[in-house]
Design a protein around this nucleic acid. Structure first.
Lengths: 102, 102
DNA sequence: TTAATATATGAGCATTTGTTCATATATGTG
DNA sequence: CACATATATGAACAAATGCTCATATATTAA
């Protein structure tokens, strides 16, 4: 195939896909997303379950919010986070399944 | 749910999945893998098509080899690379499709 | 063997990333 | 209001990343 005959990806698509995979590439964010795919959680619960500092979790949640992968609702002083992108969860589940069965 | 009631991921699975997503998270590697999913290519062809230096491509191919995502065969002085993990290509295609239709 | 070509690889460097620490903001309580 | 609790956020810093440049290795041809 010649250069001009290739099926190229749009630059915006490449950047978008890269953002999604970057989000999934970090073990901490993977754990957070996997946890939130099982149940809605508040921040300190995530921190406790994953054994991380509140600050570290909050920073990662901020990143996931920016990418619109999670959303939250407030209940008093507490914020409950949950997944906001089923497609990304589907990619995560597939990758996990594949890694588990090999 | 209490901490001990969560379905946790095995550390090895987390690391493995993280490695896969890290590989897919870089635009350059995405382009290389997407290209190789279309046809077997030699190194300088990849470099030309993607507008990158031979060295940069070779470094990324070395990384993808380490992860067993690509393989190669030699023909004289030339090395022909191709994909060696259909599952990862499947994840990539799904993410691309999703990004394109939104 | 010498030279040419194709690719790999090590060092160096700028950028990005993920954390911690300290502090700010928001909400509820007395 | 003052105070406690839950979370967010900015600064700083170490580690990881992706490139370039120079050079090494492998193969072929003369």
């Amino acid at each position: 195939m010649k250069t001009e005959d290739h099926s190229f990806l749009d630059g915006r698509v490449i950047e978008e896909v890269s953002r999604i995979f970057k989000a999934l590439a970090d073990p901490t964010r993977m754990k957070i997303l996997y946890l939130l795919s099982q149940e809605e959680c508040h921040v300190s619960h995530i921190a406790e379950v994953l054994g991380m500092s509140q600050s570290a979790v909050s920073h990662q949640l901020a990143l996931l919010r920016t990418l619109r992968l999670v959303k939250y609702r407030r209940e008093g002083k507490t914020l409950f986070y949950s997944c906001d992108d089923e497609h990304v969860i589907s990619l995560l589940r597939q990758a996990i399944d594949h890694a588990q069965h090999q």
